[in-house]
Design a protein around this nucleic acid. Sequence first.
RNA 1: GUGGGUGUAGCUCAGUUGGUUAGAGCGCCGGUUUGUGGUACCGGAGGCCGGGGGUUCGAGUCCCCUUACCCACCCCA
Length: 441
Amino acid sequence: MGSDKIQPRTLKGFRDLTPEMMIPREGIVAAAKGVYESFGFSPIDTPALEYTEILLGKGGAETDKQLYRFTDNGGRDVALRFDLTIPFARFAAQHIGSLGTPFKRYHVGPVWRGENTQRGRYREFVQCDFDTIGTTSIVADTESTLVIHDLFVALGFERFSVRLNNRKVLSGVLECLDLADQAENVLRALDKLAKIGPEKVTAEMVSTAGCSEAQAAEVLALAAITGDNAAILTALEPLVGHSKQGQQGLAELTAVLEGVQAAGVAEGRVRLDLSIARGLDYYTGTVFETFLDDLEGIGSCCSGGRYDDLASLYTKQALPGVGASLGVDRLLAAMEELGMLEGRAASAPVFLAFFDAERASDYVALAARLRAAGVGVELYPEPRKLGAQLKYADRRGHRLAIIVGPDEWKAGCCQLKDLDAKTSDEVALDDLASVCLQRLG
RNA sequence: GUGGGUGUAGCUCAGUUGGUUAGAGCGCCGGUUUGUGGUACCGGAGGCCGGGGGUUCGAGUCCCCUUACCCACCCCA
């Protein structure tokens, strides 16, 4: 037997968002848009579905496995995008003729990865990307770093750091050690340093990357470098040695740091971190990740880098680029965990109680007048008990409540309650709009 | 995909060596003379004990499978 109802449920890694979560998420996106636009990035959009060949192999073997892929009704092999960068590369290759270079865009939208879920990791999540393409200038890297910095400041974070590194530096060091062809295995082993210790890392380098003990020790020396940005740069110089690539990477890092400093960014907010080695396969120069000091465990909330040959997969025209992706949903999870969300479910800041059942039209008219004056107002739809209405308003998180009963209507005034401060004042209806605007700041 | 943990009311959890009508706190709804919310008092609703199978006279409690979530690995936003 059982119920004849279909059990309501959502797929693993997919979730519904209630107003309490959606309102702050919209806030994050709005803040991001504001910062992006202040740097001159323009919005674009692309389809969620792409031909599989567009996406396959572009993000590395790992993203291929995570692809949501199927055959559409027309027999086409299609897949859901797993990030916004690859579709943008395709977009750029297709439209760059009319767009012109350099081109700066931002893009907000959901992406899908069929991987295991974890804290702050979902199968469907929103990214908020910005990229500059059509220039190899390091200034673009510098400005990208500043975008990330300004973004986290705009979101209200004090304690965070943008971790900066450059793939060319790592490659250069490995080149000097004759390990260039084992870069991936070496860096993967190196990345585990903090977790498993130098001895095991050395062992792994020897076994998986074919390093000698001496080579492994040199690589570990790289990770041992600490200190402020200037100290790290100095220490890197000998390690990079004669590698042309390494020297260029070092010069790029230096340039970015100089630019960031010139822009007045506080020391420590942007810092070199030689462990930021990985990321998607297509990064070739600057790479960055962003960590919250109070919640490092949740991972990077904004990552990106320079990719000098990404669009070349789709066009002969050289379209180098640099950009990053803000993980909106991960950031939202972090902010929730850090208690940064207000928990307001009300979109309109002002609540208007429906008190006198005989005056429905008067309430509607009053609400309309306030809205016309720029005050967001929610009129309760039923003349329920006042206590119940106020409880509703309080729970939803309205800031102000307006009460107009028979007596007030006659007197042309109302009770204006501040729901947060728990105070109440008598205000003339003629002054109500301006008083509300003033209270709401 | 691998390993470990958890899954009992909306939420956080109790549930004794398997034994009759499964509990608490918070939340929710209603009420405390039909005009005022976060406090107090009273009352109420709400659980196929994640799902399926097995052992047993009897299972929330034991065994198997499955599913979801959490943690680690891996990878990443």
